[in-house]
C-alpha cells in the first residue's frame, strides 16, 4: 500500500520550508554587515559584538534566567504535588474547583492572567519586581507541569507503591524511592516546559513586573515595536541556536537510551531463551 506519492513529498517540503525559512533568513541576516534587510553588505559579526556589549540586554538576560530558574523549579514541585493530588487523593471537598483551577489557566488568555495578577499584587501592596514575576510564572507553569505529570501518573501501576508500603516503607519513602524515579522523565519534561514558558513570556511579565526587573522578552518587544533591528537578529539567532542544540542533544540521548534498552532486552531474551 505504501506508495511514493508526489503529493505527500510536496506538502512536506513546502510545509517544512514554511516552518523553517523565516528562522533561517533571520540567522542569515544576523551576519549582514548592513542595517538594511534588502542590502547584503558582506559577512560580519558586528551585531553580535554590539549585542554582547549592550548592558541593557545582558541585564535583561540575567533577570530572565533567574526568573525562569526559580519559577520553573517551584512550578515543578507544586505541579507534581497537584498531579499527585488529582490522581491519588481520591475524593475531597472542592475537588471540582481544584481541577478547574488546574485546567483554566491553560486556556486563559495571557492578557487576562496578567491583568488579574497585577490587580492582586497592587491590592495587597506587593512591590513589583523579580519576585512578582516569579509568582506569576510559577502559577501558570505549574498547571502545565501538573498536566504533563498527571498523564504519566495515570498510567502508573499502583501495585508497585503498595509493594513498597508492604515492605515497610513509609508513604513518603515509597513516593521518593518508587514513584518519583518512574515518573522522573515526565517531571523533567515538565520542568523544561515550565522553563521555556517562563523564558518566552512577554505579556504576563509585562503586567507583573516593575521598573527594576525588565525581562528579555520585554526588552526585545520594546526594541522591535518600531521595526527590524540587526541586534535583535543576532540575539534571535543565538536563542535559536541554543534551542536547536538542546533539542537535538536531548533527542539523541533518548535515541541512545532506546537502543541500549533494546540491546539489553535482546540479551536478556537470549539468556532466558
Amino acid at each position: 500500500m505504501r506508495r511514493f506519492s508526489w503529493f505527500n513529498v510536496t506538502s512536506l517540503t513546502f510545509g517544512f520550508a514554511f516552518l523553517y525559512l523565516p528562522m533561517v533568513l533571520l540567522v542569515i541576516y544576523s551576519f549582514n554587515a548592513s542595517k538594511l534587510v534588502t542590502v547584503w553588505a558582506g559577512f560580519s559579526t558586528r551585531w553580535y559584538g554590539e549585542l554582547l556589549r549592550d548592558e541593557q540586554f545582558m541585564d535583561a538576560a540575567w533577570v530572565t534566567i533567574r526568573v525562569a530558574l526559580f519559577s520553573s523549579t517551584l512550578a515543578t514541585v507544586l505541579g507534581t504535588l497537584a498531579a499527585v493530588v488529582m490522581i491519588r487523593a481520591g475524593r475531597f471537598p472542592g475537588r471540582t474547583l481544584f481541577s478547574g483551577m488546574i485546567y483554566a489557566p491553560l486556556v486563559m488568555p495571557e492578557v487576562i492572567t496578567g491583568l488579574s495578577l497585577l490587580l492582586l499584587f497592587i491590592g495587597i501592596g506587593l512591590d513589583r519586581g523579580i519576585f512578582t514575576v516569579v509568582l506569576a510564572h510559577t502559577t501558570f507553569a505549574m498547571c502545565y507541569v501538573s498536566v504533563v505529570v498527571s498523564s504519566r501518573l495515570a498510567t502508573f501501576d499502583t501495585a508497585l507503591e503498595e509493594a513498597a508500603l508492604d515492605l515497610g516503607c513509609s508513604p513518603f519513602e515509597a513516593f521518593r524511592l518508587v514513584t518519583l524515579p518512574i515518573i522522573a522523565p515526565a517531571v523533567i519534561s515538565g520542568w523544561l516546559l515550565a522553563f521555556t514558558l517562563s523564558l518566552d513570556d512577554l505579556v504576563i511579565a509585562s503586567f507583573t513586573t516593575g521598573p527594576s526587573a525588565t525581562t528579555l522578552p520585554i526588552q526585545i518587544f520594546s526594541s522591535i515595536r518600531l521595526g527590524v533591528s540587526p541586534q535583535i537578529n543576532a540575539l534571535s539567532s543565538l536563542l535559536i541556536g541554543v534551542v536547536a542544540i538542546g533539542v537535538i542533544a536531548a533527542s539523541l540521548a533518548t535515541k541512545r537510551r532506546a537502543v541500549t534498552q533494546a540491546r539489553e532486552e535482546q540479551a536478556a531474551a537470549r539468556v532466558t531463551g
Binding site: P22, M23, L25, L26, Y29, V37, L199, D200, L202, P217, I220, F221, I224, G227, V228, I232, N233, S236, L239, I240, V243
Partner: peptide, 12 residues
C-alpha cells in the same frame, strides 16, 4: 523557540 522571535522573523 521563542514565540516572540517567530513573530519577529516575519517582520523582516
Amino acid at each position: 523557540t521563542s514565540f516572540l522571535i517567530r513573530v519577529y522573523s516575519w517582520m523582516g
